[in-house]
């Protein structure tokens, strides 16, 4: 990190295609701690930013398996072990009757878990130093904002600013920690 309080450089694009092209250039120029803040997701951005596919599906699969185990465990414990009862001479472990709840529990665990995991993952998987929240970027309105964090190994304020300008970004500015640090 630089001794100054500069946190990074911001610049924005007006169209998703411009942002996509810029992202590939930033990636190719060797920047690591950069991010795009956009009003909606852009197709192909993961690749342009050099990110791997999200690992959320794996979390979902694990959670779904937990749901299945939970439902099967509960139903078999209750119906076979804890209080077996004779319903019309059918077997205690009447597995077809356990399918609906097993399915519902699988969806329940997987869906709610995925939602929570995605929120937490999104919060944690940021650049080491995201733009301060108080800086109004317009990224939730109509701007596709590029942020290069000052924590980047290549960081040099003047160079970064020139580089972002060279991408054709508008409103390029360095942001310091100053008032809001």
């Amino acid at each position: 990190m630089m001794p100054t309080s500069t946190k990074g450089v911001l610049g924005h694009f007006r169209e998703p295609d411009e942002a996509l092209a810029a992202a590939a250039k930033v990636r190719d120029a060797g920047w690591k701690h950069f991010d795009f803040l956009t009003p909606f997701p852009i197709h192909g951005m993961e690749e342009a930013m050099g990110q791997r596919r999200s690992w959320i599906p794996i979390a979902t699969a694990v959670l779904a398996a937990c749901g299945i185990l939970f439902a099967q465990g509960l139903q078999n414990y209750v119906m076979v072990w804890d209080w077996p009862m004779n319903f019309g001479g059918k077997p205690h472990a009447s597995w077809p009757a356990f399918i609906p709840i097993t399915f519902e529990a699988m969806v329940f665990w997987a869906a709610l878990g995925t939602a929570l995991v995605a929120i937490v993952a999104g919060k944690r998987d940021t650049v080491p130093q995201p733009p301060p929240m108080v800086v109004e970027t317009g990224a939730t309105v109509d701007r596709f904002v590029l942020w290069i964090s000052a924590t980047d190994p290549k960081w040099n304020p003047a160079e970064a600013e020139t580089f972002v300008r060279s991408l054709g970004a508008q409103g390029v500015r360095l942001v310091d920690g100053g008032a809001d640090a």
């Binding site: 991010d35 795009f36 803040l37 956009t38 009003p39 997701p41 852009i42 951005m45 993961e46 930013m49 990110q51 596919r53 999200s54 959320i56 599906p57 979902t60 609906p100 399915f103 519902e104 969806v107 997987a110 869906a111 995925t114 939602a115 995991v117 995605a118 993952a121 999104g122 919060k123 998987d125 940021t126 650049v127 995201p130 733009p131 929240m133 990224a139 939730t140 904002v145």
Partner: peptide
């Protein structure tokens, strides 16, 4: 604390797709 970061969107889109894929059989079930 949503910022619109594409590092968030990446997980978000993945999660949204999965939720849709889970909700579809759920609706029918």
């Amino acid at each position: 604390g949503w910022t619109g970061s594409h590092r968030m969107w990446r997980h978000y889109e993945s999660a949204y797709m999965i939720l849709a894929a889970l909700a579809t059989p759920l609706v029918f079930s």
